[in-house]
């Protein structure tokens, strides 16, 4: 029996991909399914040896109907994700345009400016949060010193404990630490915009804003779309910034889904309940990703750009 070339090709491809499938099953599919299984039990960290009892959907029901669910969801979706991603994209675009400008080149500051921009990105989040906590410190922090010296405030502000200032403070840390990645990515995209398009537009009398709106932005849109998607997923699931900055406090005021997962699993020791929150987060992100591709399909955007 001889195999057709097409079938042989398929078998070869399958055999070459098989080890990767095995790795994916071992390190992704199995943990995911195990987490799903845990979410239907009442297992705690104290019962790891004995295992938990099945509780059906009660973990999901308890979480989705809890008094804190709305606050946690709002914190995660609005403050942690929407605000920081929007600011990151806006500031990243501004920095990218600045770094690509003739002005910086004329004063021979392009390289230095690009290096400076990379410093926050190269700073590990742990270090960034600790540094910013010190900057925000009410007793010894330079920000309070500056505000007091200039007379803008009469008493020190406890930025990380005050309900009015705590979220803006966290947003500041996230944006400071992550905007450079967006800026550098957009800078790379900016450099692919053909210069002759701008020249032609200039000859046709287009203003700078019109050039940006109708030439630059369409070229940047695919990059912005990918950055937005990645930033949303990465930020939505992020634990580090909130936990290190405030431990979800004061009280539970800055609690987000990722910190709730940690609190429930490793402080309250309720692994099953925590797994249910994790599954909920995964479902939300999967739905978001699907909708995002449905309405902002990257292929279509590539087509539009040409």
């Amino acid at each position: 029996m001889t195999l057709s070339p097409k079938l042989r090709n398929r078998i070869t491809i399958f055999m070459m991909l098989f080890p990767t499938f095995l790795l994916l099953i071992a390190f992704y599919v199995y943990p995911t399914l195990y987490n799903l299984q845990l979410s239907f039990t009442d297992i705690t960290l104290l019962q790891l040896r004995q295992g938990g009892d099945p509780v059906g959907l009660s973990n999901y029901i308890e979480f989705l109907t809890s008094n804190s669910f709305f606050d946690i969801a709002l914190n995660t979706v609005f403050w942690l994700t929407a605000v920081t991603v929007a600011l990151r994209l806006f500031l990243g675009l501004c920095f990218a345009i600045l770094l690509n400008s003739r002005f910086l080149a004329e004063i021979r500051m392009t390289t230095i400016a690009r290096l400076i921009l990379l410093v926050p990105w190269a700073t590990p989040p742990v270090v960034a949060v600790i540094a910013w906590r010190w900057l925000f410190d009410p007793r010894h922090g330079p920000i309070n010193d500056l505000l007091l010296t200039t007379g803008l405030i009469d008493d020190p502000v406890a930025f990380m404990s005050n309900l009015t200032t705590v979220w803006p403070a966290i947003v500041t840390i996230v944006v400071w630490n992550t905007t450079p990645l967006v800026a550098v990515s957009l800078l790379a995209a900016l450099q692919t915009v053909p210069e002759d398009l701008h020249e032609a537009a200039e000859i046709d009398g287009a203003t700078r804003w019109q050039q940006f709106r109708f030439i630059t932005l369409p070229f940047l849109t695919p990059t912005i779309s990918v950055l937005a998607l990645m930033s949303v997923i990465w930020t939505f699931n992020n634990f580090v910034y909130v936990w290190l900055a405030t431990s979800a406090g004061p009280g539970t005021y800055t609690n987000v889904l990722a910190t709730e997962v940690y609190i429930r699993a490793f402080i309250d020791l309720r692994l099953g309940y925590s797994a249910a929150i994790g599954v909920t987060m995964a479902v939300v992100m999967a739905v978001f990703g699907a909708l995002y591709f449905r309405y902002f399909g990257l292929t279509e955007m590539q087509d539009k750009v040409g």
Binding site: S161, L163, G249, P250, G251, T252, Y253, I263, I267, D268, L269
Partner: peptide
């Protein structure tokens, strides 16, 4: 009930009240 767990939920609740969150 678990002193550790009681401790954690109590601390969070007091933080919530003391900060004016609730």
């Amino acid at each position: 009930a678990g002193v550790g767990q009681m401790w954690n939920v109590t601390a969070r609740a007091f933080g919530t009240a003391l900060s004016g969150q609730s």
